[in-house]
């Protein structure tokens, strides 16, 4: 197998675990959503993928995990490589078996199953059944709240508890790469901070590589090593988390550090800035 080196790998000098090269995605054979999307996720890192509503973040994750096919979507151009092998033509269950697990947007817990059964469902692809008990307690270590909810029907858990369950379910698969789609959705700022801290610990302690999709950049760039900003189906800006945090445009548009203005896209911000520079 040939190792795939791509532009995203430059920031680490190592081959990336996951690369997307000019990926194009269409839904229903007509709706073009990803329009030449390229990015890379190096092993062991946390990479943030940021962008506003409808930018195509979830679509990117589904293209990687193969869940796209269940929604009449398809990768129509470009390629996706994981550990040096093409995965864009593989089925979702084969991709999970390779070690990529997507925690879907909106939590999607199995409502009529108990907390523990949800976690066990996450371990479906595991062959080493003898380690499942140990990993259940690992999940309860990360999310102590779930411990006392073991036998509770998951549909009745609070939004925060469900989000923890959704991430815990991902841990149970022991993936090499965890794709998290807006884990902060609908949670209080305090809870978001707690969950992000746990995500950071999972990355460090379990050595799980993480691709984190978020709309709110502040928290995501707080724990990420590297960030991509996408808009309208492609990447418009990338850099180390530190650089992005300091970037004026990002600050203005995504971190909300300037006065609340009318909604502008990142591109407009950029144009506006450029024009200003030209004029001055």
């Amino acid at each position: 197998m040939t190792r795939v080196w791509s532009r995203g790998a430059h920031h680490t000098g190592r081959p990336s675990m996951l690369t997307l090269n000019n990926v194009e995605v269409m839904y229903d054979n007509v709706i073009l959503v990803l329009k030449g999307m390229s990015m890379a996720v190096p092993q062991g890192k946390i990479v943030a993928l940021l962008g506003s509503n409808g930018a195509g973040k979830s679509t990117t994750l589904k293209a990687i995990s193969g869940l796209l096919k269940a929604e009449d979507g398809a990768v129509t151009d470009g390629d996706i490589n994981f550990e040096g092998q093409r995965i864009d033509n593989q089925s979702a269950d084969a991709i999970v078996r390779r070690g990529i697990f997507q925690v879907m947007e909106g939590r999607r817990v199995f409502e009529h199953l108990t907390t523990e059964e949800n976690l066990l469902a996450g371990s479906y692809i595991r062959r080493d059944r003898q380690n499942i008990k140990r990993d259940l307690s690992l999940v309860y270590d990360y999310f102590p709240q779930l411990m006392k909810l073991q036998k509770r029907t998951a549909g009745y858990l609070s939004g925060g508890e469900q989000q923890m369950l959704a991430i815990g379910r991902g841990l149970m698969a022991r993936p090499k790469l965890l794709l998290l789609d807006e884990p902060s959705l609908g949670l209080s700022p305090l809870l978001v901070r707690e969950i992000f801290e746990i995500i950071r610990r999972i990355n460090q302690e379990e050595k799980t590589t993480i691709l984190l999709v978020e709309q709110s950049a502040t928290m995501a760039l707080g724990i990420a090593d590297y960030g991509y900003i996408m808009e309208n189906g492609k990447i418009v800006l990338e850099g180390t988390a530190e650089k992005l945090r300091d970037n004026e445009d990002v600050k203005e548009f995504y971190l909300g550090l300037t006065e609340v203005g009318k909604k502008k896209s990142y591109r407009e911000v950029k144009h506006y800035k450029r024009r200003k520079r030209w004029l001055s």
Partner: peptide, 23 residues
Amino acid sequence: SIMGIAMRATADDQQAALSMGIS
């Protein structure tokens, strides 16, 4: 059994089940 749980999970939410690798 894990297969039994997987089948109930599929009955609950097919796409989420697919995301666990349950065919």
